[in-house]
Design a protein around this nucleic acid. Structure first.
Length: 884
RNA sequence: GGACGCAUAGCUCAGUUGGUUAGAGCGCACGGUUCACAUCCGUGAGGUCCCAGGUUCGAAUCCUGGUGCGUCCACCA
């Protein structure tokens, strides 16, 4: 019972996370607990690979906290659990970061100065360093992933997967090369995909010029050199007299030109004059118009952002420099009609570097999303092998058929909308870091092959979009296309869930669906769980410039990993952005310490927990144990069982926040504040306490792996908590006991309030009497201890000169001899009577309404019960008032 | 222009098929240190559930309209 003198517990008063976390982590890793074990149902998550560009940020921390929670939960439930870690080479991001570093060191143009091989060496070196940093940080978060299976998006095996997929798609005709308009980044010297565009608002002068008989407006006069088509809407009455194909002479930038009238529905009649000239080489819409009408396309701006000879005197000039000069020229020619200085439009920038993008027509590789091909497998359900479908069809079907489920559900709509608007995916990039396109050229011949087909063949210099390899991630990490590896891991695919931020739903999630359904005929994951963005306490995005960035590693150092994890899980809902403040983390640090002290108290109560009587399970269905159990035991066991069941269900439903909150309320509000207080009075609870402690440590483990494991290993010498069995809820519950215990709590609270209201110091012991709670007659000692009273008595009527208050169906009285103010006491009672009467009235009207019969029985019963209780309470109050 | 989300206590947010007199954490006020924990304990104050209609016996919850904030997509000559 008492702390055993011969084996003093070495638990300090305060939990110090920084002292134990690293050791615990490496003990887990060494023990092999992170590896899939047993022959339970397979459960697999692939870690969204962090980029090898820098350090772990708060978004990663959310991801790791949630994924580790799911993984630990499933592992403890006996599933054969595998969490595969890895990193992403993040092609453009990484190469441009290294280039920027080299420029900072004094290099002018790293690509020219170093050449392909040397630059790649530099980038690879940097990526290796980043890898060390980032994986150590992933460990710091407590992530229980199987490091022996770590993968890299750019390693040899993943390259095989990429090449194999490329070959398949090329064979099926859905990878094609073509001259099309792409988003060219003049700074990066590469194109980027539509999804990588970030639109930024910009105020630019908006000029209106005379163009023959028309007026046209533009914010970009520097692109207008080759313009020789004037386009209007076919239904525009203002320009009825002009017919498609009409030509006219007009004075323009480089002198007289012949322009042609084109009619196209892409024109917005409301905008500007309803007429525009087009620059097909440098504008997506214009390009499409030109394609429709088979018009000439001319390049005006080169790939470095300088004007070409077509611009005459401006040739070689930077576009920003040329623009005002071009306007001057047109003004001198008398062609400038007006200038709107307040015009705001949106310009396309690269979301990774915020450089302005310049559309260009270039020869690139594309994945055709709308082109039908012969489906390779029957496994998707909708198609037989050989049926024709498009990649879009596959992507839509995966979610439509319920094979993949998105949480929260509303993102399903967003997903479908994205697919509907999806254009062909440009996959070639003009950078060197990444998977080289497995295509070889010799004269006019093209061959797709991993290795050189022979002498004089030259490989395509470009690399693939980083998302091409990321798209394969769920199965390339499991060994595909290597037959042996893939066979070994086949059981883990489709993976259970893909957990990531909603901001990369399009970039990544959708592309994984595309790749997996195409290559394997199988969805990549059963569920998608999307978490929200973490913002600062005012709801602003975290950014270096605002100085509001919360670095998870700093917080871990200060408050411990468990506190950081809880702060990211509790109070957040899927798909919803959350605000995080340091004080929130502090609050959860307090809670970890509370749990520590709860455990410390229990361990001191029960002495040596690992020996004891040997019985650790405590069950109400065991008659012997049931007989010995007190009211508080039955209450806490029932609650524990309820909480176990509810928390399990909530985690299964991805409702982590609510699960954590419920556990916290139970641990702090029920266990610590009530049961442990009673345990100080009622003795002989060793087995109970042991059972409760073991259960809550297990329940908390997925949320707070470190503190729980630390306590577990201090208390129980055999085994680790990480691989312990998840608790099961009991079938037997004691509803009456729960109710009675709640009444006990209410009585104690009422007494505490009475004391506070009457200014009685807590140290002063008092006599109390209770009227009408006979079920609690054996609880005098507990009530006395909890409410700090010297004597508790059950009576028929409360003495006149005692202060009182209603509780449940009865009254509680407190001996304040002589101090009672009858007038005040009466007023208090009258007010309470009034409130109760009002409440009764609403209940009565509702109950007597014949229509109320429509309500479910449960509701009606509950309301009847409430009414009865209120009536008894009213009687008690009235009696008391009379007696005064 | 299209779609989505949010609006509940001073702050951050729960509130799961509509059903007790709407909740938590933080903050605030008051009281408390021997005996697990001051990273603690106890008590309390604080709400027109954004507004207006509607459906219903019953609405924070469902419907319609509006206001404010935010996000995504498309377009911007």
């Amino acid at each position: 019972m008492s702390p055993s003198a011969d084996k003093p517990l070495s638990l300090p008063k305060t939990y110090d996370a920084s002292k134990v976390e690293d050791a615990i982590y490496s003990s887990w890793e060494k023990s092999g607990a992170f590896k899939p074990q047993g022959d339970g149902e397979p459960y697999c998550i692939v870690l969204p690979p962090p980029n090898r560009t820098g350090i772990l940020h708060i978004g990663h921390a959310v991801m790791l906290a949630i994924e580790d929670l799911m993984v630990r939960f499933n592992r403890m439930q006996g599933r054969k659990t595998l969490w595969i870690p890895g990193t992403d080479h993040a092609a453009i991001a990484t190469q441009s970061k290294v280039e920027a570093q080299l420029v900072k060191k004094g290099m002018k143009n790293p690509r020219e100065e170093l050449g392909r091989e040397k630059l790649l060496e530099e980038v690879t070196k940097f990526a290796a360093q980043s890898h060390e940093t980032i994986t150590n940080q992933v460990r710091k978060m407590g992530s229980s992933c199987d490091w022996s299976q770590e993968k890299y998006t750019l390693d040899e095996e993943r390259n095989k997967a990429v090449n194999r997929t490329f070959e398949m798609m090329y064979e099926d005709g859905i990878i094609e090369r073509g001259d099309r308009i792409v988003n060219w980044d003049p700074k990066m010297q590469s194109n980027v995909s539509d999804d990588e565009i970030e639109w930024i608002e910009e105020k630019t002068p908006f000029y209106t010029f005379k163009y023959g008989p028309f007026e046209i407006s533009t914010a970009r006069p520097e692109t207008k050199f080759g313009d020789k088509y004037v386009v209007m809407h076919p239904d525009d009455k203002r320009y009825k007299k002009y017919k498609e194909g009409d030509t006219f002479e007009c004075e323009w930038l480089t002198g007289k030109i012949t322009a042609t009238v084109i009619k196209d529905k892409a024109i917005d009649m409301e905008f500007g004059t309803g007429v525009m000239t087009i620059t097909p080489w440098h504008d997506t819409t214009d390009f499409e118009i030109a394609e429709r009408h088979d018009l000439d396309k001319e390049q005006i701006i080169d790939q470095k952002g300088k004007l070409l000879p077509i611009s005459g005197d401006f040739a070689g000039m930077d576009i920003d420099v040329a623009r005002p000069k071009i306007v001057d020229l047109l003004k001198k020619k008398g062609l400038l009609v007006s200038t709107d200085e307040d015009y705001v439009h949106r310009v396309a920038t690269n979301y990774r570097g915020s450089a302005k993008l310049e559309p260009q027509i270039m020869r690139q590789w594309f994945v055709r999303v709308n082109k039908p091909f012969k489906v390779r497998q029957d496994t998707l359900g909708k198609w037989k092998k050989g049926d024709r479908a498009t990649l879009k069809d596959l992507m839509r079907h995966a979610v439509d058929s319920g094979q993949t489920n998105i949480v929260p559900e509303r993102f399903t709509k967003v997903y479908f909308h994205w697919i509907d608007n999806l254009r062909d995916w440009c996959i070639s990039r003009q950078i060197w870091f990444g998977h080289r396109i497995p295509v070889w050229y010799k004269g006019g011949d093209i061959k797709v092959s991993e290795k050189s087909p022979g002498k004089d063949w030259e490989q395509d210099p470009d690399t693939l979009d980083t998302w091409f390899s990321s798209g394969l991630w769920t199965f390339s990490t499991l060994g595909w296309p290597d037959e042996k590896e893939w066979k070994k891991n086949r059981e883990f695919h489709p993976t259970a869930v893909l957990e990531t931020g909603y901001d990369i739903l399009f970039f990544w999630v959708a592309r994984m669906v595309l790749m997996s359904t195409y290559v394997l005929g199988e969805v990549p994951f059963k569920d998608v769980y999307l978490h929200g963005l973490v913002r600062d306490e005012k709801g602003r995005k975290m950014s270096k410039s605002l100085g509001n960035v919360i670095d998870p590693l700093d917080e871990i150092k200060k408050y411990g990993t468990d506190a950081v994890r809880l702060s990211l899980i509790i109070g957040t809902t899927p798909g919803q952005d959350t605000n995080l403040s340091e004080s929130k983390i502090q609050g959860y640090r307090n809670f970890t310490n509370k749990l520590w002290n709860i455990s410390r108290f229990i361990l001191m109560q029960i002495g040596d927990p690992s020996t004891g009587s040997g019985t650790i399970k405590y069950s109400l269905s065991d008659a012997k144990q049931n007989q010995r159990a007190t009211l508080s035991d039955k209450w806490i066991l029932t609650r524990l069982s309820e909480v176990t069941e509810s928390v399990t269900k909530k985690i299964e439903k991805y409702d982590f926040s609510s699960a954590g909150e419920e556990l916290r309320d139970f641990t702090w509000g029920d266990l610590a504040d009530w049961y442990l207080e009673i345990a100080k009075v009622e003795k002989g609870k060793e087995e109970m306490l042991n059972h409760i402690l073991r259960t809550i440590l297990k329940l908390w483990h997925p949320f707070m792996p470190f503190v729980t494991e630390s306590i577990w290993q201090t208390a129980y010498s055999n085994g680790q908590l990480i691989t312990a069995e998840w608790p099961k809820s009991e079938s037997g519950s004691s509803k009456t006991e729960v109710k009675n215990f709640e009444l006990l709590r209410e009585i104690v609270t009422v007494i505490r309030r009475l004391r506070a209201d009457n200014g009685i110091e807590p140290a002063k012991k008092l006599e109390i009497v209770i009227q009408g709670a006979d079920a609690l007659k054996d609880q005098q000692d507990n009530i006395a201890a909890l409410a700090r009273c010297s004597k508790v008595e059950f009576v028929k009527e409360i003495p006149k000169d005692w202060v009182s208050s209603s509780v449940g169906r009865g009254m509680v009285g407190l001996n304040l001899v002589g101090a009672i103010d009858v007038k005040k006491e009466k007023a208090k009672l009258e007010k309470e009577i009034e409130q109760t009467e009002k409440y009764l009235k609403t209940l009565s009207t509702r109950l007597s309404d014949p229509e109320f019969k429509k309500a479910p029985k449960k509701v009606v019963d509950k309301m009847r019960e409430n009414k009865e209780e209120a009536e008894q309470k009213l009687n008690a109050l009235k009696d008391r008032l009379v007696s005064l």
